[in-house]
Amino acid sequence: RPMNAFMVWARIHRPALAKANPAANNAEISVQLGLEWNKLSEEQKKPYYDEAQKIKE
């Protein structure tokens, strides 16, 4: 299954978030990633939607 825009973004940002929160488990990191993603504007998300579309094609 191809990655969606959030997954493209999260793949880039997960390592830094995990390093900054070494005690957090994957579920907690995923929740935090979701919160951070939701704070982004549509303009900030656009490159990730574009990349996800390329992956689908």
Rank of each mutant, 00 (worst) to 15 (best):
I55N: 09
L17C: 04
A27L: 13
N26W: 13
M7W: 10
Y49K: 07
K46W: 06
I12M: 09
I55R: 05
E51S: 06
K19G: 06
W9Q: 00
N21C: 06
R1V: 13
Q32K: 12
K45Q: 06
A24L: 15
N38A: 15
P22Q: 04
M3N: 11
K39H: 04
E28Q: 12
F6W: 02
Q53A: 15
E42R: 13
E51R: 11
S30Y: 14
N25V: 03
F6R: 01
E28N: 03
Y48I: 01
P47T: 08
E42Y: 15
A24C: 06
D50F: 08
M3D: 10
V31E: 11
R1C: 09
V8W: 03
P2T: 09
L40F: 03
P2C: 10
A52N: 02
K39T: 07
E43N: 09
V8Y: 08
Q44N: 05
L40M: 12
P22V: 03
A5F: 01
A52L: 08
K46C: 04
E43Y: 08
Q53T: 08
P47K: 09
P47I: 07
P47E: 05
A10S: 10
R1E: 13
W9Y: 06
W37Q: 01
E42K: 14
L33D: 00
Q44L: 08
L17G: 01
N38Q: 11
N21K: 05
A16E: 10
A16F: 12
R14N: 02
P2V: 11
E51M: 14
G34T: 15
W37A: 00
R11T: 13
A16K: 13
E42Q: 11
L35P: 01
K56D: 09
N38P: 01
E28L: 06
R1S: 13
H13S: 06
Y48G: 00
E57M: 06
H13Y: 12
A10M: 06
V8T: 03
R14L: 06
P15G: 11
E57C: 06
L17R: 03
W9R: 00
A16N: 08
P22N: 04
D50I: 14
P47Y: 10
P22C: 03
V31H: 13
K56W: 15
A27H: 15
K56Y: 14
D50S: 07
Y48W: 14
L33I: 03
K56C: 13
L33Y: 00
D50G: 04
A24T: 04
A20R: 11
I55M: 12
E36P: 01
Q32E: 05
A5Y: 01
L40S: 01
E43W: 04
N21M: 06
K39W: 03
L35Q: 11
K46V: 06
K46F: 04
A27K: 15
E51G: 03
N21W: 11
A5S: 02
A10I: 06
I55F: 07
S30F: 13
M3R: 06
A16D: 07
P22D: 02
K54W: 08
Q53V: 10
K56F: 15
I29Q: 02
